[in-house]
Simulated scan of single mutants.
Amino acid sequence: MDYLNDMALFVEVVKTRNFRRAAAVLRMPNSTLSRRIALLEEGIGLRLLNRTTRKIELTEAGQLYYERCSRIVDEARIAYEELGDMVAQPTGVLKVSLPVDFATTYVAPLLPEFAALYPGISFDFDLTPRNVDLVGEPFDLAIRMRAPENVTLISRVITRISAQFYAAPEYLQVNGEPSKPADLEQHQCLTMPTMPSWPVHSAAGTADPKVESRFRVNSVSMIRKLAVLGMGITFLPERIVADDVAAGRLQRILPDWQGAAQPIYAVTETRLLPAKTQRFIDFVKERLREAN
């Protein structure tokens, strides 16, 4: 594609009508510029410029070539400037796949500020637990609770979230309150199918109680609701249950114990991202730096 670069050099030479002035504008040696134009003429097979000691003049072929090239070079310049504007003020539709509970609890409160900062961006959110195909489906980004198994995808940690133990007062009145993590094995524990145990730590050490329940649910919202209804103990991040705790529907138990901070990932197909996607990732990461 060197001929495209040489085309731009040729246009600058014609505009200045002088190799030395054109070389100064292009910030390259005059000898290099002269050699590149000569190679361009050699590649085309026609002389484009008549050179004299005082000036240069276009040949008939050179005039035709200049008329075509100048439009191409101008279009390339405009495209470059427009892309620069997009980086400064991103536009377009941002399509994101993310889990519904993370979206409603953590992302939704951030959207008014982000939307005001970037009015040119519109949003298409797909709230689903499934792992969308970032290669085969038209998504800019996926937010996931686990790192992708596909090693060709690019994942970035945007925040870390830890969980604590909660239960409804009604449940504790009937079943008693556990005094240590091992006691959880004697309780109804509302958990996801992917979490057969709840590894936790405190100043006293670590524990990894196995948990059992009549209910295994792949929805954080339903687990929270079942806990409020007194169906068992749950292990969720504080922000998820904050309203229920404030209203007295849930209370924290085993307060000295909590889960390890689990990373949340922004997953993309490539490292080279459109400005709209990069700005969104950076914004969410900054706002959720201290998420829980």
Rank of each mutant, 00 (worst) to 15 (best):
L273T: 05
T234G: 04
Q278T: 15
D244Y: 07
A247S: 15
L254K: 03
P263G: 06
V284P: 02
L229E: 13
I253K: 05
V267C: 06
L254R: 01
W257A: 05
R271M: 11
L273K: 07
R287N: 11
G230C: 07
E286W: 10
A246S: 14
P255W: 11
F280G: 01
L254M: 08
W257D: 04
E269Y: 10
T270I: 14
D282K: 13
P263T: 09
P255E: 11
F280R: 02
T270M: 13
F280T: 02
F283N: 11
D282T: 13
P237I: 04
A247T: 15
V267T: 08
T268Y: 02
F280H: 05
A246W: 06
T270N: 15
A247R: 14
A261T: 07
R249G: 03
V284N: 05
D243N: 14
R279I: 06
V228M: 09
R279L: 10
V241W: 00
Q251T: 10
K276E: 02
R271T: 14
L273I: 07
K285M: 15
G230Y: 02
A260R: 15
I233R: 00
L272W: 11
E286P: 00
L236H: 03
E290A: 07
E286F: 11
V245F: 08
K285D: 11
Q258K: 14
K285Y: 10
P255Q: 11
I264D: 01
P263C: 07
L236R: 03
I281M: 04
L288Q: 07
E238C: 03
V245S: 06
G248N: 13
P255K: 09
A246G: 12
D244L: 06
Q262A: 12
Q258V: 08
I281F: 06
V228K: 05
I240D: 01
I240G: 00
T277I: 01
R249T: 07
T268K: 02
L272S: 10
A275Q: 09
G248A: 13
P255F: 10
A242P: 06
A227N: 05
I264Y: 11
R271A: 14
E238L: 03
T234V: 08
I281G: 01
G232F: 00
I233G: 02
E238Q: 09
V228S: 07
M231Q: 04
E238T: 09
D244F: 05
F235R: 01
L254N: 02
K285R: 15
R287F: 09
F283Q: 12
Q251F: 05
W257I: 10
A247Y: 13
P274A: 05
F283T: 10
R287V: 08
V284K: 05
T277W: 00
V241N: 00
L236N: 02
T234D: 04
A260E: 15
E238N: 04
P255V: 12
L250N: 05
D244K: 03
A275C: 13
Q258E: 12
D256N: 13
R271D: 13
R289G: 08
P237D: 07
F235W: 10
I281C: 04
D256H: 09
A246L: 11
G248H: 13
T277M: 00
G259N: 07
G230Q: 01
G232W: 00
